[in-house]
Design a protein around this nucleic acid. Structure first.
Lengths: 203, 203
DNA sequence: AGCGTAATAGCCAAGTTTGACTAAACCGCG
DNA sequence: CGCGGTTTAGTCAAACTTGGCTATTACGCT
């Protein structure tokens, strides 16, 4: 719940402001906040006494908007949460890893092609972020640490590009997927490797 | 929904088998599957016609267990999902990035310390994974691509270690957080930097 | 002036996820 | 043999998330 944090540095705000700010950060992608959840979160935080509704104004016939502020209790809670995420490394869900764990279910050719494609997509992102870092737009209108986040993301992505290419080569080389010393042992029938049955299209 | 995939290569299985397999992979951490969601998923997939309940046996007075198999429709669906995740790079939620975006709310000293700490934690993970890669246990009992996943994770983590140290230095050096050219401009009052008010303990 | 599009503000029902809970049966061991 | 701990198998209510919906006003353009 880092909605709390946003309210804290924009207060007093109403829900729609928060939503706009989040969308302008593209935060729906890398934070865990889709616009739909904002209002629910605001109400829940208010119930818990972390926020306080300050005013409810109505402009014309539109939905009334409620403005919120952070309570002292809310500040403490936020500090605690923030510290937690800074000091503790959490392992985060990775849908690609999930898919990769089913490697044997992909025909070798396609797996290699997909990895190469992934490398290209990631490289494009890296290039885009590097370009942004050099741009005046970012340097002159965004806090510096936004750029630092870009650096983190591109560093990670660059490491992954190298990995994709390395693994693609191994797959093409025909390395066996089975554990060493079990090439023809029992108990791995479920891992029957998938042969290319129909051709695939690189999209 | 990669439960489907697991059922596919373990079939016929019952929920508890799936759960055990997932836990043995520590998949609750990096895939998006907590044990609690398995049974719901199985039922939903069955409703959708992707799975088929094969049998329901009762051993003693324990809860009856239902065994599932994948239908042809389910195989197709799985192939589709799998391809989707292989070919498409998704950006994944990153709680640390969310926390980092509130950098100005952390006292400089603590931010730097936390980053250094993070580097240490990540380094430990890398070391552990590297050691596993050299171990016979992994080489002889796990499919090779499990090791490849470890390589991916350590590559990413290593990149992040370097980043943490670099950024910690910049923070300690006192680099301003404000956009270039706005050092004393208006409109950033919310970004008032937080000064160290109380000491923190490195845990 | 008229009309289509975008922005404003928020609600909501339906779907998902989750941690905690049950309750019997098996295992080992003093 | 009894008894505490673990394993087996799964349920469930509560919390959370989400995409889509509403209805009004402002804006741009011809």
């Amino acid at each position: 719940m880092m909605i709390l944090g946003l309210v804290k540095w924009m207060q007093p705000v109403h829900g729609y402001d928060v939503r706009r700010e989040l969308l302008s950060w593209n935060a729906d992608k890398w934070a865990n906040v889709q616009p739909g959840s904002i209002y629910h979160a605001l109400r829940k935080l208010t119930e818990e006494g972390l926020l306080r509704a300050v005013a409810t104004e109505q402009v014309g016939g539109r939905p009334a908007r409620t403005t919120y502020e952070v309570t002292p209790k809310g500040e403490d809670e936020f500090d605690g949460l923030l510290r937690g995420h800074w000091w503790q490394v959490e392992d985060t869900a990775d849908p690609f890893a999930a898919a990769f764990s089913f490697l044997p279910a992909m025909p070798r050719e396609e797996a290699a092609a997909a990895l190469r494609n992934r490398a290209i997509q990631l490289r494009a992102r890296v290039d885009w972020m590097r370009a942004s870092l050099d741009s005046n737009w970012l340097r002159e209108t965004k806090p510096v640490h936004v750029g630092w986040m870009f650096e983190l993301w591109s560093a990670r992505a660059e490491a992954e590009v190298a990995w994709c290419e390395r693994i693609a080569e191994r797959i093409e080389a025909g390395v066996s997927y089975l554990p060493a010393g079990l090439e023809r042992a029992e108990g791995w029938s479920g891992w029957q490797e998938r042969l290319p049955d129909r051709p695939f299209d690189a999209k």
